[in-house]
Design a protein around this nucleic acid. Structure first.
Lengths: 208, 208
DNA sequence: CGCATAGTTTACCGTATGGTCCATAACGGA
DNA sequence: TCCGTTATGGACCATACGGTAAACTATGCG
């Protein structure tokens, strides 16, 4: 009983998310957003409130997709360790392939806003916590499958893996060569302690 | 034969650097800078040119101090591996102790500007390259001292260590618990391959 | 003591920003 | 068809931004 919207809300959030991702929050103007979404200011404000609220929506969207991607990597076919390796390699390929240097919206938002904006900080922390949980779960499965040495806390090992993953994202934006990311990915997989009796320290290529 | 300056240029750069570090580049206004430095706009522009030039000066200053700090860590007394461990632990303590969440200016600048500002990108990359060189040098020394297993490329191992160090900085700003940083620091040191015949995989505490 | 030079201070400028308002348009229901 | 309701688009607003101009002030030299 009223005029219907001419846009899909999710598509608009997606367009805004891409814009925020390339320009950052502060440096993205409303003109940028109207250009990116195709909506006028009135529609944008009517649907989302203001710039900050739209940014939070974009952040939610990015976080959900990022977590879904991790879950997908860790749910492919194969043994737990193979799935962990698949994710690490996927992340390495992702950051290396980001030739436009658009980077991870989570990391960029954390750098720009997390220290002053609690709502951003909460979302970034959610992402980190969920990612850690998924990694720990997979590492635990790998231990129980006998692929990784038992007796190590999966949560602690997931800490290291997560730090490496976030570090790969960080260094590539510092202009690091792809080889730095590749090396880090291969080594972290090779160095996770294997059960005694099984090799796996020096040549990772035959294990993962 | 002219009116002398009433300020010390380095002190001003230092004050501006702190301001940029807490607020970022775009979100730092000239009023913020005049307040932080105590200088008027005229003096600021007369001495440094404009906001961007002042930022680059601040970035140079930060990079130089950061590199000097790494070099200092890696030059303390003790064996090469002990010095490497000292640096990793120092970095962990540093990021954990940054309770104000001010973060690393290099990382924040890379996130905010490196993709669009070549001059920032160059400085960030310099920092990364120099840090990598220092780490590789120390790892090489540890290999030659028999503390680390030979046969691994020090540059490659430095890649992993550097990724972990930058990752620690990244996750802490995502609200990660200090334990995540501590775990990553301890594990990366424990997992670097030791010479055959020497243990070092399961209990790091007695080695570093 | 002036005078040239350089530093400081303050007022100001054009512009771009985030946000609002309102006239208009498009729908469903009566 | 008419009306209530909601969406749209563009004009508009106050403000804050980076940067500039000019008047003023402090120094060294002659």
């Amino acid at each position: 009983m009223a005029r219907p919207r001419t846009f899909d809300e999710d598509q608009v959030v997606c367009a805004a998310r891409d814009q925020f991702r390339t320009t950052g929050y502060t440096a993205t103007s409303l003109d940028d957003l109207t250009a990116a979404t195709g909506l006028g200011r009135g529609s944008l404000y009517g649907a989302f409130g203001d710039k900050h609220a739209l940014f939070l929506r974009a952040l939610d969207s990015y976080r959900d997709e990022a977590i879904a991607a991790i879950r997908a990597d860790l749910s492919t076919a194969g043994s737990p360790l193979m799935r962990l390796a698949a994710h690490v390699h996927a992340m390495a390929a992702f950051v290396i392939g980001d030739t436009a240097q658009r980077g991870c919206l989570m990391a960029k938002s954390a750098a720009e806003l997390a220290s002053t904006d609690p709502e951003v900080a909460r979302r970034v922390n959610q992402f980190l916590t969920e990612a850690h949980g998924l990694l720990a779960e997979c590492i635990d499965a790998a231990q129980r499958a006998g692929e990784l040495a038992p007796g190590h806390d999966p949560a602690q090992q997931a800490n290291l893996v997560l730090v490496v993953l976030r570090g790969m994202e960080a260094v590539i934006r510092c202009g690091a060569p792809p080889s730095m990311v590749r090396d880090a990915a291969e080594q972290i997989l090779a160095l996770l302690p294997r059960p005694t009796g099984a090799a796996g320290s020096s040549d990772p290529s035959d294990r993962v």
